[in-house]
Design a protein around this nucleic acid. Structure first.
Length: 656
DNA sequence: CATAGCTTAAACATTG
DNA sequence: CCAATGTTTAAGCTAT
């Protein structure tokens, strides 16, 4: 139930393709692993896709969603854990793994099984290979543009910087996942940067980049496996080589985690549990769709970068120092340390090719991640402009939503409000609101009748939207008080009822959250954003939630959070400090305070005439909040350990 | 089962 | 008359 066509279900489906996560964003190995498991768990409940649904357009998301069971879910979770652009690397990682698995299955299944593989499966395999080739091609393209340069003498700094931010193991793995190269050392060797005395490794870097082959994990003893294509079927290899889907004694197939003592056992497990069946192919299809969409996005962003560099008179191969770090920092979502580790403005390693693309030139939204890297004045300037919980989310993923046909995880009301507040005079005509929607979201460039009706409906329905008639006609404004009043819904106790707590690991450099569902009481600390909250909600078992409704819940929860009256000063302060750009929390506070004692930015009275009071359902009272999610969060926040750690790790800029 | 928020659809009114 | 704008109601979905 819940996955029908039309209506709100479309919204649900749209989120699916973001399901896999981007491990590149985590520097902590635990966080990395946790995120991986989290993702894998999301994919566990994949059901066999109905054939007709699978036949739909490969880019359309509903296909993938149709393969999900309503109970599990969570494509939304994944999208919400990380900003959409940040999902990319992991997508590619998982796609690579899946590709290998499928290829492996094709080559290692018995002959009888193999005979059962029809044209469909083979075609699918071919498709996967093509996808992989596309992926590799993008890396090459980026290299050609100077975005990802591996020229001799340039690779060392990026690699070292990356290594500073990431554990060597993870870095190596990610590197391999993205580039298809065994290790960073190996790249150095190939690029004339061999720092060791052993230069005998002849693994072909170029070949690995253009072929659909998948990198192998190093063996536990440190020996790299022979980079043998899976089609080089060798029974001996099965038991001697490592396997990307096998690590730490367990199967790494999404959602599996089956324990396997050795490679042989793992291979058996792989062939028995993860054969080329509907489920496996469904998972691969999800990846394919994700990657496909991201390929488009990447192409656009690459083109944009090219144009920008051209405009700035920068030859792609010789980016100037002053700009490159910012570009890369924002474009590739690199950590502060990473960015600062590039004083020369040298390009980053190919890892960045698979990393998310973060908007960097979208007006007031530029901030967030990129602003953490020494462009604070931009952040401040922009954060002063308007203040909505969706601001940071939108800021981070502005370009994403502009280009990807993905429904934004916000309610109509919040979007309308955002649009209005973004306007210079905080007022817009209906048509201007329409234009904002279509300008900001690819999703709203279609189905115009539907969402425009919804916009009008929301404008009329909600008291927070005030129609003001002026000489030119009518404009819509936001009554902030009303908007804030309507935000906290009754969500009492849904955390406690599940006896589940969670923690969010926040990497102070990368500013990425890693919600981890746990059965223990764990301090909560981290960046608070609608997406995070939404993810938390989802992570608590709300996976089947309608995407729109999840968005509403997330925003509501955040609104609850943003209400500083709900938390004491210390926790509130820490919250602000922990916030990524402290756009959401602090700006909300700022807005309230700047107008004096929680008065709205603009009250209906200020607009004078032609205002009538809308009758909305009575708002909830404050008394139901103590047991809410955010109340729990607040309690956890006050735990001394993490809070102290966070303060120590945060740059002083964040503590202002 | 009741209630709530949100979305979608649609009917209807008003306005330029 | 028509399209845009605005209001209102209803249904369906999700959740607690």
């Amino acid at each position: 139930s819940g996955w029908r066509t039309g209506g709100a279900h479309r919204a649900v489906c749209v989120y699916v393709w973001c399901s896999p996560l981007c491990c590149l964003c985590f520097s902590c190995p635990q966080a990395l692993q946790a995120a991986r498991q989290f993702i894998l768990q999301q994919a566990t409940g994949l059901n066999s896709p109905s054939s007709n649904e699978v036949k739909q357009s490969p880019v359309q998301v509903p296909v993938s969603m149709a393969m999900m069971t309503p109970q599990m879910i969570t494509p939304q979770q994944m999208q919400q854990i990380l900003s959409p652009p940040q999902l990319q690397a992991l997508l590619q990682q998982q796609q690579a793994l899946m590709l290998q698995q499928v290829t492996h299955t094709l080559t290692h299944t018995g002959s009888s099984q193999q005979q059962q593989l029809g044209n469909k499966q083979l075609a699918f395999q071919q498709q996967l290979i093509q996808m992989q080739q596309l992926q590799q091609q993008h890396i090459l393209n980026l290299q050609r543009q100077g975005l990802v340069s591996l020229q001799p003498g340039q690779g060392a700094v990026p690699i070292q910087s990356l290594q500073q931010a990431m554990c060597p193991t993870d870095l190596q793995q990610l590197w391999k996942d993205v580039t298809g190269v065994q290790s960073t050392e190996e790249v150095m060797k190939h690029e004339g940067l061999d720092l060791t005395t052993n230069s005998s490794n002849t693994t072909s870097y170029s070949a690995s980049k253009v072929s659909p082959q998948i990198p192998h994990h190093p063996l536990p003893n440190g020996q790299n496996s022979v980079h043998t294509p899976k089609r080089d079927s060798s029974t001996h290899e099965e038991h001697t080589a490592s396997h990307p889907l096998y690590g730490h004694g367990e199967c790494k197939w999404p959602g599996c985690e089956a324990l396997c003592e050795d490679m042989g056992q793992f291979i058996k497990h792989l062939n028995s549990e993860h054969a080329l069946d509907d489920r496996s192919t469904a998972q691969c299809r999800v990846q394919m769709q994700v990657v496909q969409q991201l390929e488009i996005q990447l192409a656009k962003e690459s083109e944009r970068l090219q144009a920008m560099m051209t405009h700035l008179h920068m030859r792609p191969s010789e980016p100037k120092p002053f700009n490159q770090p910012l570009n890369l920092a924002s474009t590739m979502s690199l950590s502060k340390r990473e960015t600062e580790g590039f004083p020369e403005g040298l390009p980053h390693p190919p890892t960045s090719a698979a990393t998310p693309i973060t908007p960097m030139r979208q007006g007031p939204s530029v901030i967030s991640s990129s602003s953490l890297h020494g462009v604070g004045h931009i952040r401040r300037r922009n954060s002063d402009k308007f203040c909505t919980p969706i601001a940071s989310e939108l800021a981070q993923n502005c370009e994403f939503y502009k280009n990807a046909d993905v429904r934004p995880p916000f309610t109509y009301a919040s979007l309308i409000r955002h649009a209005i507040l973004e306007a210079p005079d905080r007022q817009l005509t209906l048509n201007e609101i329409y234009n904002w929607f279509t300008r900001m979201f690819a999703y709203f460039r279609r189905n115009t009748a539907t969402w425009k009706n919804a916009v009008r409906h929301n404008l009329s329905l909600h008291k927070c939207f005030v129609r003001v008639e002026n000489v030119k006609g009518a404009v819509w404004t936001v009554d902030e008080v009303e908007y804030q009043k309507r935000r906290p819904p009754k969500m009492t106790g849904y955390v406690d009822s599940r006896l589940v707590t969670f923690k969010v690991i926040v990497d102070p450099q990368i500013k990425i959250l890693v919600p981890i569902i746990t059965l223990n009481f764990v301090p909560f600390s981290g960046i608070l954003s609608p997406t995070l909250v939404k993810n938390i909600i989802s992570g608590l078992g709300f996976g089947s939630l309608n995407a729109s409704y999840q968005a509403a819940l997330a925003e509501s929860s955040l609104g609850l959070l943003n209400s500083t009256t709900l938390m004491n000063n210390s926790t509130g302060a820490s919250l602000n400090m922990l916030h990524i750009g402290h756009d959401d929390v602090s700006s909300t506070v700022e807005q309230v305070n700047s107008n004096g004692s929680c008065s709205p930015g603009l009250s209906p009275q200020q607009y004078g005439h032609q205002i009538h009071v809308k009758e909305e359902p009575a708002e909830m009272e404050e008394d139901s909040r103590p047991m809410s999610l955010m109340a729990s969060v607040t309690q956890n926040l006050s735990m001394p350990g993490d809070e102290r750690d966070m303060e120590e790790e945060l740059p002083t800029e964040e503590l202002e």
